[in-house]
Design a protein around this nucleic acid. Structure first.
Lengths: 209, 209
DNA sequence: CTACCACTTGACCGATCAGTCAAGTGGACC
DNA sequence: GGTCCACTTGACTGATCGGTCAAGTGGTAG
């Protein structure tokens, strides 16, 4: 009974991603993932040599999806401040969807997995570090464009500011996961981010829409 | 062979804290904790009704230690900017000690545990949320004092700024854990925090020491 | 001296874990 | 029509999981 190519494999990745994101790596068993997809464990190990390899593959899937989304959001054709506004909107939407589907605020999947496994499996730590580095470089390019447009002082330390933005966003996402409450992210995230960047939201938001 | 009162109990808590902080809750077994303390599992379950209860107790221990430390750092007798400087110094020291002892950057123990267990055990999520709330209130009081001393604009949204500071710090700590690298925290954390607060470090640091 | 009790021990439990394997099954290609 | 092979199945393994329990052990209080 050969199915459509890779159908089982993709369903395993999708389900694993949801279960691990919602709960945690060690809290989700291979049996549980297989049961959710209605597949026997032998099939699982036909596609993946180990549970750890599955985790890496789910991260790979997340990464490529994220790249498409962020390439769009941070397109140079968009005003730089609008990019930050859009990335917050995207995060809110993503978190609300995950909450609706999985019943819990999920936060940043890379951070959750990374925090749990970085000390056990260096490969995971390295992978997550690369992803974080890429995100920071999106922020850096937008900050450079803000300087070019005289919307923030040209004395701004772009690299430092990008680190601040990244840590702030990921910190808020994880806090929301723990509180199981999207309140701050929905209501204050955009204002806080603009404050952090050093522009007032009201001044510019009208130009953007 | 009754030992000094609570000696075993306290050693279990101390060891569990280290192992769980270094690795993760689900990655550390009760057997492993017992073996580290050289105690049999029966003794463990004499003191703790379950593994989850132990986790709560380790958090309790962390919390009371942290309260003493933060009450000192954020003492109103200290200039507010010096409080922030001191909290960063404390974080650096704490992280370096943990790294030296445990062989890996450990980050924020509450965040690690909370991120892993919040979706499984609401009690953990609530406990961690309370701790985070307290930390933010330390930052808020210091920000109010900064306004009082005209060191930041009196238009500053203190509550929002405190959230920014908290998320930034915790985000950096978790990133350092994943990268297993204290570089940024050691070299740039203080400057980034001062930038985030809205004061230049050079301008004020001489007044503080 | 004795009785009590906090504490310790080691053997034990059923459940679950990640991972294995030999025996199919059926679509695709020659 | 036959062969091949990706895929599936279900039964299996040994290790480990959190947790239990009855039988000590020894300090202490009366």
């Amino acid at each position: 009974m050969a199915r459509a190519p890779n159908e089982t494999r993709e369903k395993l990745i999708k389900t694993a991603r949801e279960l691990i994101w919602r709960n945690s790596y060690n809290a989700v068993s291979v049996d549980e993932i297989c049961a959710s997809v209605d597949v026997k464990k032998g099939s699982f190990y036909h596609f993946f040599p180990s549970k750890a390899h599955l985790a890496l593959e789910t991260m790979e899937a997340c990464t490529s999806e994220m790249k498409n989304k962020y390439d769009d959001i941070f397109s140079p054709t968009r005003p730089p401040l609008a990019r930050f506004e859009m990335v917050v909107d995207f995060l809110i939407t993503q978190q609300k969807e995950a909450f609706a589907e999985l019943g819990h605020v999920c936060g940043c999947p890379f951070m959750t997995l990374g925090s749990e496994l970085a000390a056990q499996d260096p490969a995971i730590g390295q992978k997550v570090s690369e992803i974080f580095k890429k995100k920071i470089s999106y922020y850096e390019s937008a900050l450079h464009d803000l300087i070019r447009r005289d919307e923030i002082p040209n004395t701004t330390d772009v690299s430092l500011k990008a680190e601040e933005i990244f840590a702030f966003i990921v910190g808020q996402l994880m806090t929301a996961r723990i509180k199981n409450d999207l309140g701050f992210i929905e209501k204050e995230m955009k204002r806080a981010l603009f404050d952090l960047i050093g522009v007032s939201k009201n001044k510019n938001s009208d130009l953007i829409d």
